[in-house]
């Protein structure tokens, strides 16, 4: 089948997407600049990087495979608790725990995905929610292991590569999470531009036709789900490592919803939505909560409403429109 879907993909493929565009360097330059112009903001920036990685994994599902889920935090939380529990039980190397946490989330993704992906649409949405609630409740009830509502206390990680300790200022955490995000992004970029990535787009657009072409839809969707789970788990592990803490919130429905909002805000299905939506959402949140600690949710809601009305395709679409308008003017 790969041959057929590859030809299909080639037919619909725009200009060679594997070629690096100048604009794509921008987020990384911005991240490094941020480090120099905003000292003291490292913890916030680290949080943003972790959430971008998490949003990227959701983009693979929502934007490319067309699998809309409301329980993506289940996998993020699995990764976070896996890393946290390993640390509490004496395995504190950041790289080792990150790898094991990624595998743990992939395993959970395989089990839940194998069940969920037999359904589509609303049923799938409900099942993803249910899986998230189930895991949340398990963590909530298993107080002796997880600390329940008190959170997992005593999470510490040994220095990165044995050299860089996770310092109080958050410098190691900053560069570590930025590095992991960069590597994961390169892998994701490769993935979505591969024949496999294009077959996912095909399934999203018209799964009946893909089936007629001989594409094993269930397997493809499951593979995408497990891969997305692994990346979400990696993001969760990063969260546990950089904050040295795991709270029940990492498994919550609220986080699942928040990350979906951040992705839609940026624009799903282009890999770059996460890089715009997450910083905008989180920096606005930080700013609003500082200005008005009591009513900031209201302002955040107003902001989201405005964006949904005026930029329904997300901020990336808006930026692209603006960009092509400028280009058009220049040509004239």
């Amino acid at each position: 089948m790969s041959h057929q879907s590859a030809t299909l993909a080639a037919a619909t493929r725009p200009a060679d997407p594997t070629k690096l565009r100048a604009l794509e360097v921008l987020p990384w330059v911005a991240a490094l600049t941020f480090y120099f112009v905003a000292p003291g903001y490292e913890p916030l920036a680290t949080q943003v990087f972790v959430m971008i990685l998490f949003a990227l994994s959701l983009d693979l599902l929502v934007g490319f495979a067309g699998i809309v889920t409301l329980g993506h935090a289940a996998l993020f939380g699995t990764g976070a608790y896996a890393a946290g529990l390993l640390s509490v039980n004496g395995i504190t190397d950041p790289i080792v725990t990150a790898v094991l946490a990624t595998l743990a989330a992939a395993a959970v993704g395989l089990v839940t995905g194998a069940l969920m992906l037999r359904t589509k649409g609303l049923a799938l949405l409900m099942l993803s929610l249910a899986a998230c609630f189930l895991l949340y409740e398990v963590a909530n009830q298993a107080t002796p292991w997880t600390g329940g509502d008190d959170g997992l206390q005593g999470v510490t990680f040994s220095p990165l590569f044995g050299i860089f300790p996770f310092d109080f200022r958050g410098q190691t955490a900053f560069f570590y999470s930025l590095g992991v995000l960069f590597l994961a992004f390169l892998a994701m970029r490769r993935l979505v531009n591969s024949p496999f990535g294009w077959s996912l787009r095909g399934i999203r657009e018209n799964d009946g036709r893909m089936r007629a072409l001989g594409c094993p839809i269930y397997l493809r969707r499951l593979t995408a789900y497990v891969l997305a789970s692994a990346i979400a788990g990696l993001a969760g592990a990063l969260q546990a490592q950089t904050t040295q803490f795991v709270a029940l919130h990492v498994l919550s429905f609220q986080l699942s919803g928040d990350i979906l909002i951040m992705l839609i805000l940026g624009g799903a299905g282009g890999l770059y939505g996460a890089f715009i939506g997450v910083p905008v959402y989180m920096l606005a949140q930080d700013l609003l909560a500082k200005q008005d600690p009591a009513n900031w949710y209201l302002w955040q809601g107003a902001m989201l409403l405005a964006i949904t009305f005026f930029a329904p395709g997300g901020l990336t679409a808006l930026a692209q429109q603006a960009l092509s308008a400028i280009k058009g003017k220049l040509r004239r």
Binding site: E42, P43, G151, F168, R169, T243, A247, H249, A294, W296
Partner: peptide
Amino acid sequence: IRRDDTGPNPDVAKRLAQELILR
């Protein structure tokens, strides 16, 4: 300098405290 921890959310409180100290 006031900050909102939004409820029993230790992770949020910890980040806010870190920011209050650093920034």
